[in-house]
């Protein structure tokens, strides 16, 4: 069972990293969801799988009499799931607002905070036709201002 789950973990991690590296914000979200679940599964497997009783003690008893499963990994996973949900909602909203504001979901073409024209020389990016096209498409006013 451990082997199957570990392999699944590995596959999920690989898929998620592929998605996250694609540079598309929507794919990044899917990658993040898969990665979060892969990590949760990893904690579950690393915490030790066992086919023994759930950690519940009998009524009136103070100590368990038989060996019991470790409840801590599940508590950790639960916390991680909750935090993951909160982050996911935030990311959805952030990426949507970004799309509204910048008009793209392609991380490569987001160049507002690190402009290629390095402030004093707006003509510098004419040597880079690819980025020039993108920035003209994205910010027509700025591109015009740069060439004038």
């Amino acid at each position: 069972m451990e082997v199957v789950l570990s392999l699944l973990c590995g596959i999920m991690a690989a898929v998620s990293i592929y998605l996250m590296l694609s540079g598309n914000l929507i794919r990044f979200i899917f990658g993040l969801v898969i990665a979060t679940n892969a990590v949760n599964l990893l904690i579950f497997v690393a915490g030790g799988l066992s086919e023994i009783r759930p950690p519940l003690i009998a009524e009136n008893a103070e100590f368990p009499t038989t060996p019991m499963a470790n409840a801590l990994p599940q508590a950790l996973i639960l916390t991680a799931i909750v935090i993951g949900f909160a982050l996911l909602t935030f990311i959805f909203i952030l990426f949507y607002k970004t799309y509204q504001s910048l008009g793209t979901v392609d991380a490569e073409s987001m160049r507002v905070s690190e402009p290629l024209n390095l402030y004093q020389n707006p003509d510098q990016n004419q040597y880079d036709p690819h980025h020039r096209q993108i920035s003209e498409k994205l910010f027509p006013e700025q591109a015009k201002a740069g060439t004038s």
Binding site: L25, F90, K97, L102, A107, V112
Partner: peptide, 14 residues
């Protein structure tokens, strides 16, 4: 809510 902040914020968050 400036363009620059969304751009920087997205990369920071990722």
């Amino acid at each position: 809510r400036e363009q620059m902040q969304y751009d920087g914020g997205v990369k920071y968050v990722m």
